[in-house]
Amino acid sequence: MTHRKKTTVYITRKLPDAVETRMRELFDAHLNIDDVPRTREQLLEAVQSCDVLVPTVTDVVDAELIEAAGPQLKLIASFSNGTDHIDVDAAARKGITVTNTPNVLTEDTADMTLALILAVPRRLAEGSRILMDPQTDWAGWSPTWMLGRRIWGKRIGIVGMGRIGTAVARRAKAFGLSIHYHNRKRANPQTENELEATYWDSLDQMLARVDIVSVNCPSTPATYHLLSARRLALMQPTSYIVNTARGGIIDESALIQCIREGKIAGAGLDVYEREPAVNPKLIKLAQEGKVVLLPHMGSATIEGRIEMGEKVIINIRTYFDGHRPPNRVLPGRD
């Protein structure tokens, strides 16, 4: 009896044990047990021998890497929602299909966004740090101790009213925030009515009027530095900005300057422009209690990661069974 050769799958980072075990059962899966990011040389070697590459958002799968791939590479099954780290057009030219794992991280990312929306005005990280500092002798409650700002009754401006933006809006409304949003396309009337949302065709106009800005749009060439120095300067000096999307959407240097000069009250960031590097000036602002910084953990839940892995497996199996994968990413789509 002849055994069918298993599909060779190269996985660039460590995935949850349940996902890796299933992949080993189904495929000739090459795992990254130590979770050390793969080097460029390792990726170049991998694409010359594997049938499927499973990268994450930290892997640069550009035209050069794709062009170096052997003829056996048929599928790039990304373990991610976004695909801005992959040159999808170059893959299409080479006849390689690209898939992603959409609609898994919406609720997790929205939860983390709301956590930052609460943490920054109410000074949660700063307060926690004070209690853990052995040099701080906390004297107890005082009427003027650690005063923050109320979010109930304030206006939130959501930049990007897609799935995550809408999920953030639902949570924000439950916390008494008035919903404002800017999007390429206006939300459907049912969603607007449910959220009692105000649509702004002009991002500039919205920024000048809201108390909290939540960045939830995708990373595309059109959204790079969408929150530029000019636009950040439009915000109120008592306003806050939260970003759980992609670091490059905000001009980080301009943001630091605005906060330093008191033109913006503070920020909550889960993503950074030169990630994994974090600007030392941001860290200094965090130490001063002006910003809350998280290490890109907005989507980091056990349930979410397992669901992502399951989608990767379905995409691989569907493709090699001769069908179109359910989460195929088409070229030329921002």
Score class of each variant (00 low, 15 high):
S78K: 06
D35V: 04
R324K: 14
G332T: 02
I259S: 03
P218M: 10
R171H: 10
I316V: 15
E288R: 10
W138H: 11
R4F: 02
R40A: 15
V9Y: 07
M112E: 13
A286I: 06
D89L: 11
E194S: 06
R209S: 15
L282C: 04
A300H: 11
R123T: 00
Y199L: 03
I151W: 02
K94I: 03
Y272M: 08
R163P: 01
V54L: 10
S142N: 12
K94F: 06
E64F: 02
I264M: 04
V52I: 09
D35Y: 08
T198R: 15
Q72G: 12
S202F: 06
K74D: 09
S219L: 15
G266F: 07
E196L: 07
I156T: 01
A18H: 00
V271I: 05
L26H: 07
P134G: 04
E126T: 13
A167S: 14
A208E: 14
I11P: 02
T136C: 14
P37E: 10
V88Q: 02
S49I: 11
K94R: 15
E107H: 12
N81Q: 07
K263Y: 01
V329F: 04
R328N: 00
V9L: 07
Y10C: 07
G148D: 02
Y224D: 13
Q190M: 03
V271W: 09
L116Y: 04
K290M: 09
L31K: 00
H296V: 04
E303S: 14
R4L: 13
H296L: 11
T8S: 14
H85Y: 12
G304N: 14
A29F: 08
G262S: 08
N183M: 00
G162C: 09
Q48V: 01
R328M: 14
W141M: 03
